[in-house]
Design a protein around this nucleic acid. Sequence first.
DNA 1: CTAGAATCGGACTAGCGACTCCGGTTTCAA
DNA 2: TTGAAACCGGAGTCGCTAGTCCGATTCTAG
Lengths: 190, 190
Amino acid sequence: MSGAQERPLRADAARNRARLLDVATQVFATRGVGVPTEEIARAAGVGVGTLFRHFPTKEALLEAVMMRRLETIAAQAAQLPAESAPAETFFDCFRLVVEQSAGKSEFAQALAAAGVDAHAALQESSAAIRARLAELLAGAQRAGAVRPELGLPELIALLVGTTTTMEHLGNDVSARERIFAVVFDGLRPR
Amino acid sequence: MSGAQERPLRADAARNRARLLDVATQVFATRGVGVPTEEIARAAGVGVGTLFRHFPTKEALLEAVMMRRLETIAAQAAQLPAESAPAETFFDCFRLVVEQSAGKSEFAQALAAAGVDAHAALQESSAAIRARLAELLAGAQRAGAVRPELGLPELIALLVGTTTTMEHLGNDVSARERIFAVVFDGLRPR
DNA sequence: CTAGAATCGGACTAGCGACTCCGGTTTCAA
DNA sequence: TTGAAACCGGAGTCGCTAGTCCGATTCTAG
């Protein structure tokens, strides 16, 4: 594909880049995708010029943030054991994705609106998650723990929807648990 | 509170106002809240000046559109019979809200971002829906058709989330039915 | 330590979108 | 029919934000 960056970044450049990513992740999650680029730069303690050198476009910054998130989720999902308890693992993974995706729907939406190739860059990362989900879904269905007529598209839509549901509940942990109970029981065969 | 408009609108003014509302509803639902105001005016066959005289702010236009939607939903929800079959009516109402709310989450989000008092104007309309939902929820719970530990906040969050789920499924009717099956079965006591 | 290459910072530009303003047009009461 | 109040239209204003440019400022190889 594409070569890695030949020359390692200068120390300060690397520091700034990392700082920008962290701050952007935080700010986007807190205040939405609409925040002016300049604020992110200021919060990271750099000028806008620096930001735009590292990420030539606001969309590129969003993409980088999303990428990191997806990779985190994919890594965590990969660690779940699939063999021993397929059903349990499936539900654990569902939980994982929902909990790690808090605030992500806005990102996806922003990226979708910004064009198709943005997705292309991310599909590489999200494909891993999708594959993992498909695998776990199949396992859970084979074990009779999830209704067999459900496909991957429905599962993903349900993940997104459940994330939205959780966002509307804020930090009420017991309410969140009740929602999980509803969704998980609904996924099981009657 | 506030008096109704004393003087009935002039014929052309009333026509334009109605047309703007219709077009805005359509365009917002189709292309999102980000559409330039001018496009809505053009699509309605009027100038921007006219639009802004009827709705002094883009937010006001959004609010008016939302209001009409909420009133429609409230009216339809009010017609459902509550006495005969509480459980069935509850699920019918759930369906109704989800199906009528397609694309609404974006509105709510936009309004929420625009300030608190926007909500105040709408709460009057949405209070009716909320009250109706609470009534039907209680009825269904009394009939043993919905798990008793669920409260109104969870129900509303679930409605919003299910709407999002449906939006991600597009027009795949059978997939939508499978989602309804999951959610409805999940709502029932184990 | 030093040269010079890489990086920084923030004033500046461009473009877009919400909203205003006012001369021209339409409605309607008498 | 007619006058004037209400309404229309769209060019223009204003503010905001993504993205550029270049002199000043580090970093690092030697």
